[in-house]
Amino acid sequence: MQLFHTSPSEIKEINELGRFGDFLFFSNDEYVMTAGEHVVYSIEIDEEQIIEASQLFYHEDAEKLEALVSELAEELEIDEDDAEALIEESKSIYDIESNVEAEDMAEASWNIQLYTARAAKALGFRGVEVEDEQGSAFMIAMQGNENELVKQ
């Protein structure tokens, strides 16, 4: 499948230092979320390398996600059922009681998306399909795979 990523600048190297670690967001179609100049990249990726967020805890190795669930539950001061629901996107941070202040909800929801991507990676997938304000999006681990990015 072909996916697209839009960047405000040319990508030379991917590391784990940004908000989403080594994951980049992709979509089925080109989209622009930045003002001014931008660069569009595409990749070809096998659909078998991507899992839907809603399927994470149905995977045969779902027990590998217990540490991530516990980590998120502790971070947000919530129970593990809610942490699991956040990771699989059956609930959002706006749906539960947590230690997140109202003005920090958007940032917390982005942090949760990273947990979702980390869960996919823990299960051996390269990426995860998530839902965001644009609809379906794909978080794909790209560190060491920069050569797969094709500038459009």
Results as ranks from 00 to 15, higher is better:
132 D>C: 05
12 K>P: 08
61 D>M: 10
126 R>L: 07
144 G>L: 04
58 Y>N: 09
70 S>H: 14
34 T>H: 14
126 R>K: 12
18 G>E: 04
63 E>C: 06
116 T>W: 00
106 A>H: 11
14 I>V: 01
135 G>N: 14
62 A>E: 14
29 D>G: 08
44 E>C: 10
79 D>C: 13
42 S>D: 00
125 F>C: 02
24 L>C: 07
73 A>Y: 03
70 S>M: 12
19 R>F: 12
37 E>N: 14
133 E>G: 15
109 S>P: 04
61 D>P: 12
139 M>C: 06
73 A>V: 05
93 I>T: 05
63 E>F: 14
120 A>Q: 06
34 T>N: 15
41 Y>I: 03
49 Q>N: 06
89 E>R: 10
10 E>H: 14
119 A>D: 01
31 Y>E: 07
105 M>I: 11
83 A>G: 00
16 E>Y: 10
30 E>K: 10
87 I>K: 13
78 I>E: 12
138 F>Q: 05
122 A>F: 07
61 D>T: 04
38 H>F: 11
34 T>K: 07
89 E>N: 02
88 E>D: 15
145 N>D: 07
122 A>N: 12
61 D>F: 10
133 E>N: 12
130 V>I: 13
33 M>N: 11
42 S>G: 02
45 I>S: 04
92 S>D: 05
95 D>H: 01
118 R>Y: 08
134 Q>T: 15
21 G>P: 05
9 S>A: 14
53 A>P: 00
101 E>Y: 12
56 L>S: 11
70 S>A: 12
84 E>H: 02
19 R>T: 06
54 S>E: 12
134 Q>V: 10
133 E>I: 15
33 M>K: 09
91 K>T: 01
105 M>E: 07
71 E>G: 04
34 T>E: 11
46 D>S: 08
29 D>M: 08
23 F>R: 04
135 G>C: 11
104 D>M: 09
87 I>C: 08
92 S>V: 14
79 D>E: 15
58 Y>M: 13
91 K>S: 09
21 G>Y: 05
112 I>S: 08
128 V>S: 06
112 I>C: 05
17 L>C: 11
70 S>T: 09
21 G>I: 11
25 F>D: 00
45 I>C: 02
142 M>L: 07
39 V>K: 15
130 V>M: 11
12 K>C: 04
86 L>R: 11
58 Y>L: 15
87 I>A: 09
53 A>L: 03
138 F>M: 06
74 E>V: 14
102 A>K: 11
72 L>A: 04
69 V>W: 04
71 E>I: 02
54 S>Q: 08
133 E>Q: 15
24 L>T: 03
57 F>L: 01
101 E>S: 12
144 G>N: 09
89 E>H: 01
119 A>K: 03
105 M>T: 07
73 A>D: 13
20 F>Y: 13
74 E>Q: 15
46 D>K: 02
104 D>P: 04
74 E>H: 05
24 L>V: 13
124 G>V: 05
43 I>Q: 00
119 A>L: 06
74 E>S: 15
47 E>K: 01
